[in-house]
Design a binder for these strands. Structure first.
Length: 478
RNA sequence: GUGCCUAUGGUGUAAUGGCUAGCACACAUCCCUAUGGAGGAUGCAGCGAGGGUUCGAAUCCCUCUAGGCACCCCA
């Protein structure tokens, strides 16, 4: 412990002395300590989400935080950003390559295969929540450790399942306070139809090579589909004219997609087809979707039919000048899709057609629209115990125990002696009732219950305390 | 990985390159001899880290680290 590592004091030590005194114990980049209101917000959301999932027939699953690296390189895809640059990798002493899970779908599918869940009645419906890890630059709504809640329906291929999953994501978000949700859906086809579509797409981009940015030109070779959701203004411009996947779907996929949309209509979920939505994970097929908060970005004008624009519309100049406007680009709150090929990618001998979604809980919690629902388990103590004198101090733990049995959480400061100090603390914690036990009370096995607001007090025997407090609290409840 | 901006006690802040880095809140101990939001006293605690320029650096420069925003990508 005390040994200073290579403290190089050599005379010629002009070389950089490591000067490593700054052993920093701070959190790693992109991680947070979550406490107080924020903690309850997370807890509350998880409980709400889990409850919804349970009502709709999902069972919980918790997969390990660490998995074999191969699970994601094969499952998520070798050429995806997640795998190429965002994984936290761990090398074990035995030489295994492990990673901190960057997403939840591949682990769930792994569990499905590993436990032979295909022998259960299909579909298998699972929900999960917890931390995930991606090595990215932290930014608004983006952390290296972040929390997701996810639902997966494994083992069925019917379009209603896709709509069902989208509906639950939509429900959960709207019940969390988001009124203006935008559901964007698309179909990215299957093995049969995607290759030919890609050919058409690449051909289209070839014709516009000169206008493509460097980055997009690169993607033309590696992952042409991704050019569709490029942020490059020039690219966006002629992406409007780009051939749409939907137009190239094979019969099966077309039928499936139509089915999904019909169910969405029937469920009353507003959606829009976004042809540029492709998502970055390899395992998706057919339906993909994202849900973002806020109204649609009423882009100034779609330069389409050119002529019909009312000429007065041109705002003199002011509006155009500042693109700043600080209108935050809405982040995706939830996303997901169908992943019919994932099982085979992970070594399954049979196909396991599945669909799932996950919600970025951090983004949900921090959005201004979010309405926090308080967690069931953790309650703010509504009782504060005050003790005066040695006798009372000795008995105080008994009293707290009595209350615990009655499920009444109690705050206290057993290390303090003074009445006024303890009262002041209770006050500052905004606790409505205090229990005061002094010399006299400890001998008589009673306790003074004081209503902090009215400042009225009453002496109550300990064995009746729990009932008394409970009745008080119920009366006090709004 | 890239670009721009930022960094002073636990928190919020002050300090033309020049006194011992100031203030407030919070926290702790004590006083006001057992009924509260107060007051008084005392205390704890800081220039993110490391270099450089300078007679002299919180202040100017460089590197690193962390944070914010954006790109990349996604939740």
């Amino acid at each position: 412990m005390a040994s200073t590592p290579k403290k190089q004091t050599g005379a010629a030590g002009a070389a950089k002395p490591p000067a490593q005194k700054d052993i920093s114990f701070a959190r790693p980049k992109g991680t947070r300590d979550i406490q107080n209101g924020e903690f309850y917000a997370y807890q509350g959301f998880f409980e709400k989400a889990a409850e919804l999932a349970v009502y709709y027939g999902f069972k919980p699953i918790e997969t390990p935080l660490i998995e074999k690296e191969a699970l994601f390189t094969s499952g998520v895809g070798e050429h995806t950003d997640i795998v190429q640059k965002e994984m936290f990798t761990i090398k074990t002493k035995g030489g295994d390559a492990l990673v901190l899970r960057p997403e939840g779908t591949a682990p769930v599918m792994r569990a499905y295969i590993e436990h032979g869940m295909h022998t259960k009645p299909q579909p298998v419906m699972l929900y999960y929540y917890g931390p995930f890890f991606r090595h990215e630059q932290p930014q608004r709504g983006r952390f290296r450790e972040f929390f997701q809640f996810g639902l997966e329906v494994l083992g069925v291929a019917t379009p209603i399942t896709d709509a069902f999953i989208i509906q639950l994501a939509y429900l959960l978000l709207s019940e969390s306070g988001f009124k203006e949700l935008r559901v964007e859906v698309n179909s990215i086809g299957c093995k049969t139809c995607r290759p030919s579509y890609l050919k058409t797409l690449v051909a289209y981009y070839r014709r516009h090579m000169s206008k493509l940015g460097d980055h997009d030109r690169e993607r033309l070779k590696t992952n042409p589909l991704r050019i569709l959701d490029s942020k490059d203004p020039a690219t966006i411009e002629f992406n409007r004219e780009a051939p749409e996947m939907v137009g190239s779907l094979c019969e099966e996929c077309r039928k499936h997609f139509r089915g999904v949309l019909e169910y969405l209509d029937a469920l009353g979920i507003p959606y829009e087809i976004k042809h540029t939505l492709v998502r970055g994970l390899d395992y998706y097929s057919r339906t993909v979707f994202e849900i973002v908060a806020g109204a649609p970005p009423e882009k100034s004008e779609a330069p389409e039919s050119g002529g019909a624009q009312p000429e007065n519309e041109k705002p003199a100049d002011g509006a155009k000048k500042e693109p700043s406007a600080e209108e935050e680009v809405p982040l995706a709150l939830a996303g997901g899709g169908r992943y019919d090929y994932l099982a085979r990618l992970l070594g399954s001998k049979r196909d396991v057609p599945s669909v799932g979604m996950s919600i970025g809980v951090d983004r949900v919690i921090s959005a201004p629209q979010f309405v926090s629902s308080s967690p069931r388990i953790i309650k703010k103590p509504r009782v504060y115990f005050i003790q005066l004198g040695q006798e009372a101090k000795l008995k105080s733990l008994q009293v707290i125990e009595v209350l615990r049995h009655a499920h009444i959480p109690v705050a206290h400061a057993l290390s303090k002696d003074k009445l006024s100090v303890q009262l002041a603390i209770a006050e500052s914690l905004e606790i409505p009732y205090t229990l005061i036990m002094g010399q006299k009370e400890s001998v008589e096995n009673t306790v003074i219950v004081r209503d902090m607001q009215s400042r009225s007090q009453e002496t109550v025997p300990i064995d009746r305390l729990a009932d008394y407090v409970r009745s008080k609290m119920h009366k006090g409840r709004p």
